[in-house]
């Protein structure tokens, strides 16, 4: 079984734990996953599933998770991590895939307008920072896993993280580098068509419940379709024409704010419903 299959099974079985036991176990999960850099992912997930199955057994025999696993889960979780073998090649391969994925995410929206040169320096910087940030966030979550925060502290942390994230996203808009290139039209068009096909196949093949990834692919495909349309004879002249809102320019800004609110609110709602 692969790591992904173990984690999917974990997600399903976790529902059997009582809220108290589940909270105890999820602290272990957050710690182990947040600190498992360079570790063999398959062994990590297999061990977490093994512990979960045993906690369910203990629960069925009237034992709480803390009574079974111990009242110092942080110490035991650290010992568990220390015992898991390192696997540097898998870590490098995973980050390489993540890097290519981030390159796609950051470069596709930049291909919409055929007249604007592609700032590949900017794209590289954003991709690298996003990966480093993702690992940093995971590490921070792992470090804080066993600290019991009060509600105001949780809210303050959430707001702080949100502001940091918004600052980084906002800041990325102003990044400009001298490393720019005009891509050949025909090559870009072929590339965009290929991406469209790959995206459609991925959407069809993805699991039913993987809505988050589907939404991300859908968002990227929107830009791919726009990129194709702005390069096709006939439609391109319409799409590349400057839009004059006249006196109704404010409506455009209202629509932008509404779109941001709907997008942000929708993501928040989705994450709350799928907290795992």
């Amino acid at each position: 079984m692969k790591a992904d299959a173990f984690s999917q099974q974990n997600l399903v079985l976790r529902q059997q734990l009582t809220p108290e036991n589940r909270s105890y176990y999820e602290d272990i999960i957050v710690y182990v996953r947040g600190r498992s850099f360079f570790k063999n992912d398959q062994v990590v997930e297999q061990s977490l599933l093994e512990i979960l199955q045993d906690l369910i057994d203990a629960q069925n025999h009237g034992q709480s998770a803390a009574d079974y696993f111990g009242h110092e889960p942080a110490v035991t979780a650290k010992a568990l991590l220390d015992a898991i073998p390192r696997q540097l090649d898998a870590f490098i391969l995973f980050n390489l895939k993540l890097f290519i994925f981030m390159l796609l995410i950051t470069s596709i929206p930049n291909l919409v307008s055929p007249k604007v040169p592609l700032d590949y320096g900017r794209i590289l910087i954003i991709a690298v920072v996003a990966i480093l940030l993702a690992w940093l966030v995971l590490w921070v979550f792992g470090t804080l896993a066993f600290i019991k925060f009060k509600r105001p502290q949780k809210i303050a942390l959430g707001i702080g993280a949100g502001l940091l994230y918004a600052g980084l996203i906002g800041g990325s808009i102003f990044i400009r580098t001298p490393f720019k290139a005009h891509l050949p039209e025909l090559g870009t068009l072929i590339g965009l068509f290929s991406l469209l096909l790959v995206g459609i196949v991925l959407l069809i093949r993805l699991r039913k419940h993987d809505l988050g990834t589907k939404m991300l692919i859908g968002w990227l495909l929107f830009y791919v379709v726009l990129g194709i349309a702005t390069r096709l004879p006939g439609i391109s002249t319409v799409l590349n024409r400057p839009v004059n809102f006249g006196n109704y320019k404010w409506l455009f800004y209202v629509a932008l704010v509404l779109a941001a609110l709907i997008g942000g609110g929708g993501t928040w709602w989705y994450l709350r419903r799928h907290s795992d």
Binding site: V43, F69, G70, H71, A79
Partner: peptide, 15 residues
């Protein structure tokens, strides 16, 4: 014995 201690030990023994 807190049974949590057996998991790291089992992994180490496997290693």
């Amino acid at each position: 014995i807190p049974k949590g201690t057996i998991y790291p030990l089992l992994l180490t023994m496997e290693k």
